[in-house]
Write a protein that binds this DNA or RNA. Structure first.
Lengths: 178, 178
DNA sequence: TATTGTTATACTCTATAACTATA
DNA sequence: TATAGTTATAGAGTATAACAATA
């Protein structure tokens, strides 16, 4: 629903052939946003198989890696606000995938856990992610995929992005329309 | 605001070193979504310099390439519904950047044009995009940027993405939360 | 009868801040 | 006094369908 690229001449050029001053085709930055949005969208579509939304996948990932975490800490790990987690965890708990256990000493705090059913769902999510990866990058050889990963990783690092944390659209400006 | 990556072992591996069965680090697909979202977010932030939102940039791009287009056709080109354009064009027209001229023969239709001021704004957008590109890819050499572009272009093509059309999050599933 | 631009409405998502119960 | 989880509310953004004017 966004569209930003401007650079008519560049868009007609193919990757390799640089006739003029500036390198790159439609702008690697635009391609990045375009393909990235597509990737997220496809992943979200696949998750519906398991009746999940992307936000759920994040919760599963963290809970799987860090059992007994509190909602507060989970919110921090996800880069979101605690109040947003309430409905999300409510839903997963109602579906028997997540458990809110009492904290040992602090009665205000919950210790969140994946149930056995939740762990099984985590397996499904992993499978979905694997298939997603394969389909998305079907155009590239294994070696090229590794090259792409390497380049993206360096960009992510230089830009200060955190490992495994998807910022989403930070809504810094105003909207995301059209 | 999303978070999807799951693959703990992979996340600890650096690009090159594949100890085991599967290639890629945190998954090129996840990196793509992560970096892509970051790119879009940064671009949106830069656009505020010119009091614009990403949706505006799309309109400028199309109007610049295809003057006298109708709102209907513009909506199609942007992959959105006509009703969404009304407020957007209203705003740009009120700011003296876009003009709604009468169609020659069809009195229902407008012919949209960039004003001189609008053309100047288009220049600013181009400058912003150029700076955005440079900052985003500062970690890579010119050659590496070209490689990245090439790989992304092939992925985009194989996935059926249209040149210069940013799909945004298609909201196929339900939400984008957390 | 179909189409252009417009408006109105209803719905989703989210951020904020208030609230309770503990500490 | 501060913190964990919760609730309520208000705002932004969008999709849908209905509308008047014109074809």
């Amino acid at each position: 629903m966004i569209l930003l690229c401007n650079n008519k001449e560049a868009m007609k050029r193919k990757p390799g052939e640089d006739g003029g001053s500036k390198p790159k085709g439609p702008g690697a930055a635009f391609l990045l946003a375009q393909v990235g949005a597509h990737a997220a969208s496809r992943f979200a579509a696949r998750l519906t198989e398991a009746d999940l939304v992307p936000a759920n996948a994040g919760i599963f990932r963290i809970l799987s890696a860090t059992p007994a975490i509190s909602q507060q800490a989970l919110a921090t790990a996800l880069g979101t606000v605690p109040s947003r987690l309430v409905a999300l965890v409510d839903d997963l708990e109602a579906r028997g995938l997540v458990e809110r256990r009492a904290h040992e000493t602090d009665r205000r705090t919950y210790a969140l856990h994946l149930t056995d059913k939740g762990k099984a769902t985590m397996e499904i999510i992993s499978k979905i992610a694997r298939e997603h990866r394969q389909d998305l990058l079907a155009a590239l050889s294994e070696e090229e995929q590794a090259t792409l990963s390497g380049l993206l990783q360096r960009v992510a690092e230089q830009q200060g992005l955190l490992w495994g944390v998807h910022p989403g659209y930070a809504r810094i400006g105003q909207s995301d329309k059209t």
